[in-house]
Structure formats: structure tokens, C-alpha cells
Design a protein around this nucleic acid. Structure first.
Length: 882
RNA sequence: GGGCGCUUAGCUCAGUUGGUUAGAGCGACUCGUUUACACCGAGUAGGUCGUGGGUUCGAAUCCUACAGCGCCCACCA
């Protein structure tokens, strides 16, 4: 065949899109279409569905790079690799985004548009987002099965959500109740406990005259809804009061309150005055006290964040307005004793940062503590068992503890949201106030003794995590018993950011254990946050956001992928910046040029898949290293150590293969006897290296593969080639000697400022190693740029020569006229000093019985050998110095 | 208030179960257009491994206390 032509520099932007199209057209992203695919063992990953709120950021790029790496690796290992794509409707996030857009462009609120029109707008927006996301996923080179794409709000997933809720309802795990919930005033919706964020702030602690007491509070306005005051039962100051009631009057325009004094062990005697004004409607803790003590509940804050009529003259004021007005009025009446500044947490909505109002509301809850019929365990217990007993492994494992802690303290999950965009709750209210939960709208009310036909569906929608919690099995067809579900569930790996361990990972485990009686995945691999070079979070306001779509055209997808995978560890935040990507772009180019050299210098380009025979020491060395590297990389990848495996591959490819073997191959190919075997080794090594790199940098490796396999019969994509199988073997030590000698000569040349192009003579006094060195004289001479290389078993140091020691042999470079003898002496003195220290060190060690008695025999033996060698070297240097 | 993580060369990070005088990439410096690659090659400099104590023949590695940075959890009204 013709010699292939390769551009001098690899230009990723010219080849990537075409390669992706060919991959996609091949159908191999779908495991069923792989040769023999139906019989292969499955390996499944579900893509954590990106929110349909817009574009993917560099965190998503990390996720895609890691997941594609695993998927491609397993595909090459012979698995039916299935990676399922999809998007998440992300109810609150998406609704907020669209509301903002409409507000900006049309100055209209969602209420101005009405539910139906608003939802239409959201759907249009989502379709656009999904297209952007699909395009970005393709750009990253993701070998994902587009034929199985899902969306959390499409029909099959909606059916799954409805089925899930109905089953839970039938099992008595779902209830509707009035509880204190986290209420976002801006979103006008509830939030789950973990959807609330806390921000440290300075707050004023007001000490109020509170009937006969003094009560401290940071939220005076809520005191208009107090129905009790709580003291620690062992607090001597208030003990006698417990059980008594008194009248509390906050002044004109407010309603007098009847306050009961209750005892509660949760009250901290040391905080404030040791008393808590109990506001059952606006504090979860107070609500529990109210339940225990059967206290009345007075709601003073409404769902719009304004005071209710129960707040008297403060009605319709916002919470903050009411606080100011109320404090002013109290001051006027002399009811404020003092004001202190304290540190506390402000709770805020995780989607819009608005302050959260705890308030009572009638909502749907999932009971996590109730034992499930026929299972004997609660959802919480099942979820704990999944990790403790059923073998869900979390990487890094410290997150297992975090998971347990969260799950153990989990409270009932409020799943209803007052959001328009999402799955409507499958519950219907009748005119008589009954509720019917069903899979589809019933013809009449299902409550006993009621047959009302006037039904309207609950206005609320589900928490977005209630639907994404079904992701591993709803994407495979549940509740239908599909072949996919049977074959690919449980999935193998869930790869996602540690920031959604609770939101999503925990919920998936909970819902899957319930619905499937299976774990959703066997391994959870958590990646960290991507930060900028200074370790700051990337954000629009800081202007430090790195957009994958900006850097891909510049450096290529492979370089971007490498920069996100190498130098990072699971669960640890990673820093990424443009120069780092540029560095990996250089490496892609290096690999390209390595290939360019191999493919253009061999006499015939062909596949060499079987390990060729080694004819020289260098051949033996590179083949042994190749085996070891393949074996080590494989075992690292199996352990999810992607970064170490990649670094090993990079060091091997660049340093050992390119800098050493390619240079040696140039020499060997000059030798007619070695030409053919060297070429074979080059092709074999290149082929193996491309395979090993493919999961990390799929584009450049596939591009080279395409040239390498030319028009060969049965040509296949590298993507579906078999992963190299190899056992680690020890590389010949003799090669290290060559490297040492060459390095030492280069070093001396550099010290004496011998121009790299200039050839000099050299004499090596090598003792027993002379034979070996003579066999490899060409390699030494060429790589060290020696004109006449003399290798002797014994000899004297020539005059006016620079000398050095390497691997136990003496090297003399008679740099006539170039050697400054004083300088040469100084250099040797320095080396002597160095060696003397080292030898002393070793001797001290060996004369210490504590060491020789306790250390393992091999270690001691190694030290002895080292000492002998170094002593020998020292002697030679001393001789040289005269 | 609890818990977790990090602290190794100017920067980003490796350092497996404690065992040569601690490594890599980038950056710096010196030299070089050797026909794969200047997105390159050869070489050099640079670290008492956050601090104090302890265990050990031996500690970057194990224990302990402390400091700095970061994160998570929690009902301090």
C-alpha cells in the first residue's frame, strides 16, 4: 500500500465530527448491535440526566469523560456496554429559568400567562435545551446509546412516576398531612429538607418582656403566633411554672394570646433566657412540641410571605416589614429588654436563594419509617441495607459514612411541590373533600360512602427527585417487564458529583429498593467539583467559567477529556484552566507524531496484533514494558483509578516509547538484519498503545487507527477492538544500564557545553559488562553522539579526559582541549562527597543490629548490594582523582 | 456544636501495605532548526513533605495535639 500521508500537526477540529458521525452510524453505541452483542455480558451506566435548563458546563464534561472512559473500556473488554442518555425536567430550576426569561423579555409573570400557556412556553424552552445538550454530549465523544434516550417527563417516565406513587399509596407509605414545611416565598412552593441551604449571618437576638418572663428571639414577628413557652424541666428558675398558663398581650391592634408553660428537654438552659417562645405554625421544632402537648396552632405568615389576619394590625405586611413595625411598637411599650448580635444561619431556597419561611401546610409525604408490608422493613432500613449489606460500593468510601448519617436521620419526605412544571400528582379531590389516589382519573370519588363525580386533580406536582429517583429502572422500561429491564438492571456504575449524593443517589437507592427489590447500581463513583486555577467555584459573576464548547475547537476534545480525568481523584475537587488543557493538547499531538513516524517509516503499514519476537536488548525491554504497562493500566482502571492509569500511559508513551525506543528503532532500522523485526515491534507497540489510550482519547486514537488499518479486510473501528491482555513482567535490568550510561555521557557533555551536534570520542571501562555494551555499542554511540566508542574490560583513565561513573562502569570522554582540569576535578570532588555521604549512611544502617535483625531480608540484602556498588564507584572516583 | 477532607519543588499533583539521598507535568534557567513532533529534544536548578510531640532499627507514610484552608451535617430559639 501507499505510504500514508499524515499532517505534521494533529488538527482535532478537522476530524472529530466526522469520526463521531461514523461511530454513531455504525450502531455500536447500542450494545444489541455489537457483533455478538446479545450474548455479551452487560455493563450499564445511566447518564445522570442534565437539567433541561440550558447548557452543559465543565462539570458535565467531566462526567461525560469519565463515563465514556468506563463504557469504552468495558466495550473493548467484550461487554455489552450500555450507556443511557437523557435529560431531567428539573421542575423548580426549569420553571424559574423560564419565568425569568419571560419576565425579562415580556415583563410578564407566569400568573399573567396562566398555567396552560406557561407550560407551553416551558416545553418549547426544554426542547431547545435538549438539542443543545445532545449536541454537547456528542461533542465530548460520548459513545452513548441514543436509541434509548429518555426524559424524566416523557410518557414512559410519567407512567413510572404514577405507578410508583400509587404503589406507595397502596402500601400506606404515602400520606397527606398538615406539617411544618420549608416554604419558598418566591417559588411559592415547599422544598425538601435537603433543598434548603444555610448561610451564616449576623442576626439580632431580641430579648422580649414576655408576660412574667423574658424570651429571646431572632424573629419577633412570629411571636404573634405563640401558644406556649417552653423551659427545660430541670431548670430551677421555671420549674414551678410548668403546666400553668398566662395571658400575653403584645399591644393595641394585636390579639391577646393564651400561653401555656411547657417543659421540654430540648430547651438549652444556657441560651438566651432559657425559654423558647413556642410558635407551632412556623417552626418544625415548635410544631413537634405542639403535637406532644396538644397545643393550638396559630398561623401568622401566609404562603405569599405576608402576615395574615391573625397578626392583627400587621396583616399584609411582608415578614421583614412586620418585624420592623412590631419591634418599633414593642420598644414604644418598653417591652424590649435588650438586643444582642449573634451568629446564626439564614435558610434559603437552593434554587433562588430566597429566605425560607417554615410554615404549616397540607402536603403529600412519603413515610420513610413505616415498615413495608411483606418486607418487614422501612424505606430507610432498606436504603441503609443497600449499602451496608447488599454491596452498593461508594467511591471514595468515606462517603459511605456520610450516606449512613444522612439516611439514619432522614425524616418523612415532602414530595408535593406547588410548581406548575412537573408530574401532576395522581390524586383527585371531590366536592366533599375526599381524595382519591389512582393511576388515572377515576370516574367517581373512591372514598367510602361518597360517589361524587365532581373531581378535580390535585394542582401540585412532584418533587423533581421523586421522578429522577426512578431513573435506573424507568429508563429500562419499568413498570413494564421489558427484556432491557431484565438484562441491564441493576446497573453497574453510577458516576456523578458528590454534591447530589443526598438529592439523587440516596433517593434512587430508596426508590429502587422499594420498587425493584434491587440495588440501582453496584458502584457509585463520585467526582468532585471543577474549580478554576485559584480553586474558586466557577460562576458567571466571577467570569471564570470554562465552557467546554469554547475550548474543544481550540484544543480538541481529547485534550479536554484528558485535562478533566488526569490529575484528579474521586471525591476531590479538581482545578482546570486553559494552560492545563494546552498541555494535554501537546500530548495528543505527540501521540499523533509518534504514529506519523511509525506509519511513515515502516516499509509496509499493517496490523500486528500478535507480540513479535525480540531480537535486541532494546526490543526485549520495550516489549516487556508494554506488557507491564498494559497490565498495570488495566488493573488501575478496574479499581477506578483512572488518573494513575492515564499518567502511567502518558509517561510510558512519551518517555519510554518515544524518547527511547523510537530513537533506538531509527538505529535498528539501518541494520538490514534488524529492520523487519523492528518494524513489526513498532507497529505492534503502536497498535497496543492506541488501544490502551482509546477510552481516554477516543478521537485521535480512532483517527490514527483508521490510517493504521488502511483498507485491510475485516477492518473494524478501534472502538470495538479487543483490549490488550498482558501480564506484568520484569523489564531487563541491562537496558537500565544502557540508559544510565547514555544519560551520564549526555550529562558530562552538557556540563562541558559540548554542542549537541558535535560528536566526541568515548572510552568505557566496563569489566564484565563489556560484552553487553559492545552488543549495544551502536545504540550508545548514536544516542550519546559518540564518534569513536571504545569499550574495554580493563583500562586506565586517559589524560585530559572528563570521567564519570554509571551503573558500575567508568566512562571517559577525552575532550581534548575542552576539559578544564580544575573544573573536572571540582566535579569529581562533588560527586565523591555525594557518594561518601551515601556510603556512610548505608554503612551506619548495616552496622545497626536493630536494622539487620528487624528489616525484611530482601531489604537488607538490597542495601548490602547497594553499598558494595557505591563503594566500588567511590574507589574509582578516588583513583581518578589521584 | 458535630463530622470529613486538604496542607509534599514557584504552580497543579503522584507517592500502593512505613524500607535507596522524595517523583512527574507545567513554569524557570542553559544548550540545540539531529529528515515524527519547537504543540519538540538534551540537560540544570528547585522540597528539613504545615507545626510540635510520640511509636519504630527506620516516618512524607502510623498515633497524638495544634494551626491554616475548604466542605458537609445539625431544631441553638
Amino acid at each position: 500500500m501507499q505510504k500514508p500521508e499524515l499532517e505534521k500537526a494533529y488538527d482535532a477540529s478537522k476530524v472529530e465530527d466526522a469520526i463521531y458521525r461514523r461511530w454513531e452510524a455504525s450502531g455500536f453505541f447500542n450494545p444489541d448491535k455489537l457483533p455478538g452483542g446479545k450474548k455479551k455480558k452487560p455493563f450499564t451506566i445511566v447518564l445522570p440526566p442534565p437539567n433541561a435548563t440550558g447548557v452543559l458546563h465543565v462539570g458535565h464534561a467531566t462526567m461525560l469523560a469519565l463515563e465514556d472512559l468506563m463504557i469504552r473500556y468495558k466495550r473493548m473488554r467484550g461487554f455489552a456496554s450500555l450507556w443511557i442518555p437523557g435529560t431531567d425536567h428539573a421542575s423548580i430550576a426549569t420553571q424559574n429559568k423560564v419565568e425569568k426569561l419571560i419576565q425579562e423579555s415580556e415583563k410578564k409573570s407566569r400568573h399573567d400567562l396562566g398555567r396552560a400557556e406557561f407550560l407551553k412556553r416551558v416545553e418549547t424552552f426544554v426542547k431547545g435545551s435538549q438539542n443543545t445538550i445532545r449536541n454537547q454530549i456528542r461533542k465530548m465523544g460520548s459513545s452513548i446509546d441514543w436509541s434509548r434516550e429518555a426524559y424524566t417527563l416523557d410518557k414512559p417516565r410519567s407512567e413510572a412516576v404514577i405507578e410508583m406513587f400509587n404503589r406507595m399509596y397502596e402500601d400506606g407509605l404515602v400520606y397527606r398531612g398538615e406539617r411544618v414545611v420549608n416554604w419558598c416565598v418566591r417559588c411559592t412552593s415547599t422544598l425538601a429538607d435537603d433543598e434548603v441551604e444555610y448561610k451564616a449571618q449576623k442576626a439580632k437576638l431580641y430579648f422580649l418582656k414576655y408576660g412574667p418572663f423574658s424570651v429571646a428571639t431572632t424573629r419577633p414577628e412570629t411571636k404573634l403566633g405563640d401558644t406556649a413557652v417552653a423551659a427545660n424541666p430541670s431548670d430551677e428558675r421555671y420549674k414551678s411554672w410548668i403546666g400553668k398558663t398566662f395571658e400575653l398581650n403584645w399591644g393595641e391592634g394585636t390579639k391577646p394570646l393564651t400561653i401555656r408553660v411547657i417543659g421540654d428537654h430540648e430547651v438549652d438552659m444556657k441560651f438566651g433566657s432559657g425559654l423558647i417562645g413556642v410558635t407551632p405554625a412556623h417552626s418544625a421544632v415548635d410544631f413537634r412540641m405542639a403535637e406532644k402537648n396538644k397545643l393550638p396552632i396559630i398561623k401568622v405568615i401566609g404562603e405569599d410571605g405576608r402576615m395574615l389576619a391573625s397578626a392583627g394590625k400587621y396583616k399584609d405586611m411582608t415578614v421583614l416589614e412586620a418585624r420592623h413595625a412590631f419591634v418599633k411598637d414593642l420598644e414604644a411599650q418598653g417591652l424590649i429588654e435588650k438586643i444582642e448580635e449573634i451568629d446564626n444561619n439564614l435558610s434559603a431556597c437552593y434554587r433562588c436563594s430566597t429566605a425560607i419561611e417554615p410554615l404549616t401546610s397540607l402536603q403529600w409525604f412519603v413515610d420513610v419509617n413505616k415498615k413495608i408490608k411483606g418486607r418487614g422493613k422501612s424505606l430507610k432500613e432498606l436504603s441503609l441495607d443497600a449499602v451496608k449489606k447488599s454491596g452498593v460500593k461508594i467511591i471514595p468510601d468515606r462517603f459511605e459514612k456520610v450516606y449512613y448519617h444522612w439516611m439514619e436521620n432522614l425524616r418523612d419526605w415532602c414530595v408535593s411541590r406547588q410548581i406548575w412544571f412537573g408530574h401532576r400528582i395522581p390524586a383527585w379531590h371531590c366536592e366533599n373533600g375526599h381524595v382519591s389516589v389512582a393511576r388515572k382519573m377515576p370516574t367517581k370519588c373512591t372514598a367510602k360512602g361518597c360517589a361524587s363525580k365532581k373531581l378535580r386533580q390535585d394542582e401540585d406536582t412532584f418533587d423533581t427527585w421523586f421522578s429522577s429517583g426512578t431513573w435506573t429502572f424507568s429508563t429500562l422500561g419499568w413498570p413494564k417487564k421489558t427484556p432491557d429491564l431484565k438484562r441491564f438492571h441493576p446497573t453497574d456504575v453510577l458516576e456523578t458529583g458528590y454534591d447530589i449524593l443526598f438529592f439523587w443517589v440516596a433517593r434512587m437507592i430508596l426508590m429502587t429498593e422499594y420498587a425493584m427489590k434491587q440495588v440501582p447500581f453496584k458502584t457509585v463513583y463520585l467526582h468532585g467539583l471543577v474549580r478554576d486555577e485559584q480553586g474558586r467555584k466557577m460562576s458567571k459573576s466571577l467570569g471564570n467559567v470554562l465552557d467546554p464548547l469554547d475550548v474543544i475547537p481550540k484544543y480538541g476534545t481529547d485534550a479536554v477529556r484528558l485535562s478533566l480525568v488526569l490529575g484528579t481523584a474521586p471525591g476531590a475537587d479538581a482545578k482546570v484552566w486553559e494552560d492545563k488543557i494546552a498541555g494535554y493538547r501537546n500530548f495528543t499531538n505527540k501521540l499523533w507524531n509518534i504514529s506519523r513516524f511509525v506509519l511513515t517509516s515502516v516499509s509496509k503499514v499493517s496490523r500486528v496484533s500478535k507480540k513479535p519476537t525480540a531480537k535486541t536488548l532494546s526490543d526485549k525491554w520495550i516489549l516487556a514494558r508494554l506488557d507491564s504497562v498494559a497490565a498495570q493500566a488495566t488493573s488501575s482502571i478496574e479499581k477506578f483509578d483512572f488518573s494513575p492509569a492515564g499518567e502511567l500511559l502518558r509517561d510510558f508513551t512519551w518517555t519510554e516509547f518515544a524518547d527511547w525506543y523510537l530513537e533506538i528503532a531509527k538505529i535498528q532500522m539501518q541494520d538490514a538484519k534488524l529492520k523487519a523485526s523492528t518494524e513489526k515491534i513498532l507497529l505492534y507497540a503502536l497498535e497496543t498503545i492506541l488501544k490502551l489510550w482509546h477510552p481516554y482519547m477516543p478521537f485521535v486514537t480512532e483517527a490514527i487507527w483508521d490510517i493504521l488499518s488502511g483498507n485491510a479486510k475485516g477492518k473494524k473501528f478501534l472502538m470495538i477492538e479487543a483490549w490488550p491482555k498482558a501480564k506484568a513482567v520484569a523489564a531487563p535490568k541491562e537496558f537500565a544500564l544502557l540508559q544510565e550510561i547514555i544519560g551520564a555521557i549526555r550529562n558530562v557533555r552538557s556540563e562541558y557545553k559540548v554542542e549537541p551536534a558535535k560528536k566526541v570520542d568515548a572510552t568505557i571501562v566496563a569489566g564484565a559488562k563489556a560484552k553487553l555494551l559492545k552488543e549495544n555499542a551502536a545504540v550508545i554511540a548514536t544516542l550519546a553522539r559518540i564518534e569513536t566508542l571504545t569499550i574495554l574490560p580493563k583500562g586506565e583513565k586517559p589524560k585530559d579526559a572528563a570521567s564519570t561513573m554509571a551503573g558500575g562502569v567508568e566512562i571517559h570522554l577525552p575532550l581534548a582541549g575542552m576539559v578544564d582540569m580544575a573544573k573536572e576535578k571540582a566535579r569529581l570532588e562533588k560527586e565523591k562527597e555525594n557518594l561518601t555521604g551515601f556510603v556512610k549512611n548505608l554503612e551506619a544502617k548495616l552496622s545497626n543490629p536493630g536494622y539487620t535483625d528487624n528489616a525484611p531480608k530482601e531489604v537488607v540484602e538490597k542495601t548490602r548490594q547497594m553499598l558494595a556498588e557505591k563503594k566500588e564507584e567511590l574507589k574509582k572516583i578516588e583513583t581518578a582523582l589521584g
